[in-house]
Amino acid sequence: MNYEDLFIQYQNLEKSLKDKTKLLAKLEKAISKEMEGGDISRCITDTAVMKSVSAEVTSLLQEIESLVSSFDGKEYIESGDFVSQMLEQCAENGVDVTGSSPNFEMFPNKVRIDVENQDIYLDRKKVACLRPVVLVQAIKKGQEKLLKASFNANKFASELIVAYDLALADLGKNPGTDLYLQKLYNYMVPMSRFRKDYDLQSYAFDLARLYAVGSSVEIKDGRKIQWGTSRDGKKGIRILDGNGREEFLATIRLF
């Protein structure tokens, strides 16, 4: 099952529908003008034509309704066809993707597929989209927008350092201790109600941009950032570096 096959069939019907509705609009204007001018004979003729075209429009709408109803969205998802085609679109559009059904990551986005209800969730928001190419292209557009957005590396570094120092004091750790970035997130956003506005994926994206900047970040007290990477997805935060390569940032230390 392929949504694109359905869409092609729909487009063929849509073209005919569009032509008919244009003709209806043209006939409506003609009838209005004829009545205004008193041309009863032509008005009767055009009204009959309009009635016939209206019947054709009704028939086309019934065909479209039947076509759409014949598409089993649940089967489309359950069979794995949706996921397969989504992954193909990710490859074609250069969108990095990892994970397996029903949960995928397209950094910094997360996609979850609710098979039972035929719902697609993008970063916890339900999106009405069973067409893989549209979903993937929307994600790519959003990612490009994020990458173009201004990012003050020094400001984010300063905020991260404040959280780091708070964590050291709270945990009774010595200066220069490696701290897990996942744990540090709780100090960055201590109140749970704010985590919807700045979730772990947003945090990961900012970490990725800071990581890409490297040693050019200026820290007022002269300390430097040292990252600790890991291949353990449970302890590390998955990012893509400046070259699009996968990295798992696990810890950070300031020295």
Rank of each mutant, 00 (worst) to 15 (best):
S158T: 10
K140I: 01
Q89V: 07
V95R: 08
I64H: 00
D178K: 11
N109I: 02
E246V: 13
V97I: 09
D178E: 05
R193W: 15
S150C: 06
E28V: 00
S150V: 08
D119C: 11
K33S: 08
R223Q: 11
I44T: 06
V95I: 05
A25P: 10
L27G: 02
K224E: 13
S150W: 04
C43K: 15
M50H: 10
Q118T: 05
N109Q: 15
L146F: 00
D241R: 00
C43V: 10
Q62R: 10
L122S: 05
A212W: 02
I161C: 11
M50R: 13
R124P: 02
V57C: 08
N93D: 07
F194W: 01
I161Q: 03
G233T: 08
L179F: 04
V111K: 00
F82T: 06
D241T: 01
K74S: 01
A167D: 07
Q201N: 14
D197C: 09
D5K: 15
A153M: 04
L166Y: 08
F194A: 12
Y203L: 00
C90T: 09
D123T: 10
P190T: 02
M106N: 04
V134E: 09
G80W: 12
T229C: 11
Y203T: 01
L17F: 03
L61P: 00
A30N: 08
L24R: 10
E105A: 14
I8Q: 07
V68S: 04
Y185T: 00
D119Q: 15
D197P: 03
N243C: 04
E246D: 14
Y164D: 02
A30R: 12
A208Y: 09
G38A: 10
V189F: 02
K20Y: 05
N2F: 11
A128S: 13
V111S: 08
I31W: 05
N109T: 08
K26S: 10
G242Q: 00
D170K: 12
I225T: 03
K141R: 12
K15E: 14
I40Y: 14
T45N: 13
D96M: 03
R112H: 10
A138P: 00
D197N: 08
Q118C: 13
N152Q: 06
P132W: 03
P190Y: 06
R238M: 02
S16N: 12
S150P: 02
V115Q: 15
I252F: 08
D206N: 11
F107P: 06
S52M: 14
S52H: 11
K234W: 15
D123M: 06
T251E: 01
E159Q: 09
V115Y: 06
K126P: 12
D96H: 09
S16D: 13
E36K: 14
Q62V: 12
K26G: 04
E105H: 11
N109C: 12
L166T: 13
C90F: 03
C43M: 14
A48S: 07
Y76K: 04
N93K: 08
W227F: 09
D46C: 03
